[in-house]
Amino acid sequence: MKIAKYPFAVLVAALLTVALTTPISSFANIIWLSSMNLPVSFFSSLEIILFDFQRLGIILYGIIIIEFAIAFSLAGLARKYVFDTKYLYPIAGAVITGLTLFLLVEFTTQTEILSGNRTLFGKFLHCFAGFAGGYLFYFLISKDRELSFIIRTLGTIYAYLILGLVLNWIFTPISAASDFGFVFNELSSSAQNALLRDFSAFFVATFLFSIFGVITLNSAWFFSAGIVYTSAGIFNLIAIYTHGTDYNQIFIGEFFLGIFPIALGATISYQKEKAKV
């Protein structure tokens, strides 16, 4: 656990930084849309914030994990050999976030992909998000973590992956349906209703199962999510080989989404049984 806490602390710290970073662009966008007298409601603002957190955030998450891994390793060495202060990780987080955003512009597209980073204030906020990530990292490594920390981290990342599907089915269900191969307008009204109802319920339920699993560490929640997706994978194969439907390689993703939470649930159960003995 002593060694494992470092990578998991990076994963959690990066997730916090993503959660603080993406709303900067969302709010920059919402403020501009409002300034144009467009009817930006609470609901549409929420749509922007949540979609940005998931779709923009998932790209940023990968980038921030890498930058934090490098920056915190260097900060750790500096703490050991140069001087020891708890602010080294936050400063490293802030510097690496600012540097990464600068380099992304200069060495890739030459454009500011994050609209929230176009102003000096926006740049400051992004660096602050890196600072907060660094501080959380320091907090998480400052004492030994239990297995529950790792399960909660992995469970949160799992829920984060499902969040995109949930948002699509809640806010843009017709688009989400077409992503699954449905020509929505060609379905009967009853079929449209069934499609939106059942698919939305499917993804919302599995998202909630995983969130409840993270909060309560009750293995039943993770098993529930896992059983649903594993079943989807099995019935996908049955549909292909028994009913002659088109080959759909999404079953690989379904098995991954099924086995992952089952593994988490099994780990929790095993630990509880072990504790009893």
Binding site: N29, L33, E47, F51, D52, R55, L56, I58
Partner: peptide
């Protein structure tokens, strides 16, 4: 980037 440009 995946971000919403406008919900409209």
């Amino acid at each position: 980037s995946g971000a919403v440009i406008s919900p409209f």
